[in-house]
Design a protein around this nucleic acid. Structure first.
Lengths: 234, 234
DNA sequence: AACCCGATTTAGTTTATCCTAAACCGGTCC
DNA sequence: GGACCGGTTTAGGATAAACTAAATCGGGTT
């Protein structure tokens, strides 16, 4: 039973980031990764929060120096904000990896658990977990794990849905937040490291035929856009 | 990135207990263990919160059916409240045990970490942790771990400070919330399972001489009152 | 240049928790 | 039995983060 001190207590000094703040920073980071400045409604969608609520929070983040913000123009992480985001992301991904490797979690269950633990786990715990499973470089979905000093591999990969018929590729990562999707991907054998060839693809965003090992599978473009790959030379 | 929904969201249905609520229930349980109904200021002290704040919260707990409360009379856990408290306590103690056994945490560090994780860890995670380390019956400080169904060993032990000179005893548990104390106890060899004999004791709550294995140590009555033992037959 | 529409922001509320200061109760002390 | 005292409770605020509804901005249309 340790202190409490929070919500409505007259604030005095520098307290750690709150859970919502960490979630906003992660979301902003994610949006910046695949595009430019994060707009209010992108954030609202991703966080499942009303757009109006985002405006308010974003102002508070700016007050804390975590983002730069111009009304009607979207937010952008400051260096401090990016560092904080990467710290949270490291926690999340190390925890995911640990749950999978050390505790036998299925890869479609780790995300939800990590989502809660990432806010409570200390850096010491995260470091011990990372050490216990051999300092992994990526999480179970293939996302890169930032180092303790906030260095992250930001290599951009292409979507499987962007490949042309005949191209061979290796799966680098799959989106981690949809359990159903992950279960299906596991079932058809798509996971980081696996080789996938586009056998054929229908025009106008139609379904793709994929060769995974010896089997061929049909997948829709939505699913294919959730799989990031590295193109392999012919 | 999963929903948010919290603090100021118009509440709709039955949501899980909040962190403060879980902490209050644990504190009330602890006080009930070593005495009678929990008074407002006992709670305030233990939670490091102003007494006035406790009054308000306690009313809310009563509204939720977790405690029974009569103004100026203190609170008492209802069955639902006790079940909830034991669930949190199980999480806390399993996590403590896991940190110590599986991740090499020192026993004076596990409490603080568990204090935060207990609110975020799912029952599935806790069960997996317990399994991974062989379903421990007690945490590293000797406190009993409730089963999944909320059964806990409520055996009362006596304080080492209550023994008379010459009595032999086995350490059952030590209080877990003071890191300093734990480091010192570890240093002089006091931990659950160890045999301790009171060599002599000064009158008027003076210091005690303890024999632990081959060595003799002087300890003050405050320290001795934080060590719970089982008296051994002569 | 006036207009419109969707994206954003502001205004005003709600909830959960905490705080301080002031009022209050119950039980001793004379 | 009245005064006092410490433990409690009430009153009144503060904060963080959401929400809804209403106002507003910016950019493309005619």
């Amino acid at each position: 039973m340790t202190p409490r001190r929070a919500r409505g207590a007259p604030q005095d000094d520098a307290r750690p980031l709150t859970e919502p703040v960490e979630d906003y920073l992660k979301a902003i980071y994610a949006i910046e990764q695949s595009g430019e400045a994060a707009g209010t409604s992108d954030l609202a969608t991703r966080l499942e929060i009303a757009p109006a609520s985002v405006s308010g929070m974003v102002r508070r983040l700016a007050d804390q120096g975590l983002v730069s913000y111009e009304r009607y123009r979207g937010v952008r992480l400051t260096d401090a904000g990016r560092r904080a985001a990467l710290r949270t992301i490291r926690r999340h991904r190390v925890i995911e990896s640990y749950l999978a490797k050390a505790l036998g979690y299925a890869w479609d269950r780790v995300h939800a658990e990590a989502e809660r633990l990432e806010h409570a786990a200390s850096d010491e715990l995260v470091d011990r977990m990372a050490e216990a499973i051999g300092e992994p470089l990526t999480d179970p979905h293939g996302d890169p794990i930032p180092t303790r000093d906030g260095v992250i591999d930001e290599t951009r990969h292409q979507r499987l849905s962007d490949l042309a018929a005949g191209q061979r590729s290796r799966v680098k990562r799959v989106s981690d937040d949809d359990g159903e999707l992950l279960r299906y991907l596991a079932q058809i054998g798509i996971r980081p490291g696996v080789m996938v060839t586009v056998a054929e693809r229908a025009p106008f965003d139609g379904p793709l035929s994929l060769r995974i090992g010896k089997v061929t599978v049909q997948v829709g473009p939505v699913l294919a856009s959730r799989v990031m790959v590295e193109l392999l030379p012919d």
